[in-house]
Design a protein around this nucleic acid. Structure first.
Lengths: 153, 153
DNA sequence: CACAATTAGTTGCGGATGCAACTGTCTGGG
DNA sequence: CCCAGACAGTTGCATCCGCAACTAATTGTG
């Protein structure tokens, strides 16, 4: 199956899947970030840290970095900002004092509890533009690409 | 606070479509950039400028910015780098002297001619991990999402 | 024809980011 | 028991990026 005419010499970015994927991912991210940026003042790394910490009962920066695939310095700085805003708190782990256990504060849990439903609703709105077959195909395509690229968890 | 099942209110990033799209797009972009970064020393903005200019016979920075949806300053700086490397050249437009017509130099056309087949081959390799059904679903999903997000050309 | 508004493109600046080097802590082979 | 190496996390530094302000040229409107 050919994506474009095989005789074409040039490259049309608008039909080039890596480029289209990037553009759609950025568009979806912007569409979503309206919520956590404008309403809660979070940027992308901070939102991802909140999402990761909120779905567990405490975790390390190392775990957040692996889970979100962000660079450890990006995680470190996002954690520092969130700690300043008192949305998360850290305690040195007793078992390994190199580690610091990250948890949501009461204020952080409040933000998380407000934010998650809004974000899931945005996802639902977004996916509503797809037919069931398109959604199934898109998810299957993402599965296959994640597998090919070694991105599975 | 009330007891709740984490799967009801919690958010699992690994199953969250905006996050999966971003991760796959970054992975695909890295997979692709091995070619233009390591073999030709181009970064992403430079590669996109080359791809846009190469498929036309001269265009303006404005056109490149619209076509690639990059910020005009990002385009301006990429063009400056490529001009230093003598892969592109600029000439003031006679019709509108604010504009500068961007073209590939001979060296630029050589890089473009080598690069495009390699990049298209990478895209083919990537898409080969998908079944026909998955590819059709993915492309249909991208179409629908681009339309929903107002990203059509 | 004059001048305000618009457009193409560049640049100063503050903030974000990744890499490498660093601190402090843990661990395993001798 | 000790020290080299590994590991968690932070920070200095160079670079990248977008916003806003700027220059220069064009267009529209009276």
């Amino acid at each position: 199956m050919s994506v474009r005419a095989p005789t074409e010499l040039g490259l049309e970015l608008a039909a080039f899947v890596p480029y289209r994927l990037n553009r759609v991912a950025v568009g979806v991210s912007n569409h979503l970030s309206d919520i956590y940026r404008e309403r809660f003042g979070l940027d992308i790394p901070e939102w991802r840290v909140m999402a990761t910490v909120g779905s567990r009962h405490g975790c390390t920066a190392q775990h957040i970095a692996e889970s979100t695939r962000m660079h450890k310095t990006r995680v470190s700085r996002a954690i520092a900002h969130l700690e300043e805003r008192e949305l998360i708190e850290r305690a040195s782990s007793a078992a390994d004092r190199r580690e610091r256990e990250v948890r949501l504060t009461k204020a952080g849990r409040k933000v998380y509890a407000e934010l998650v439903p809004l974000v899931l609703e945005r996802e639902r709105e977004l996916l509503a533009c797809l037919t069931k077959e398109q959604l199934r195909g898109l998810l299957a395509g993402l599965d296959a690409l994640e597998s090919f690229l070694g991105l599975q968890d």
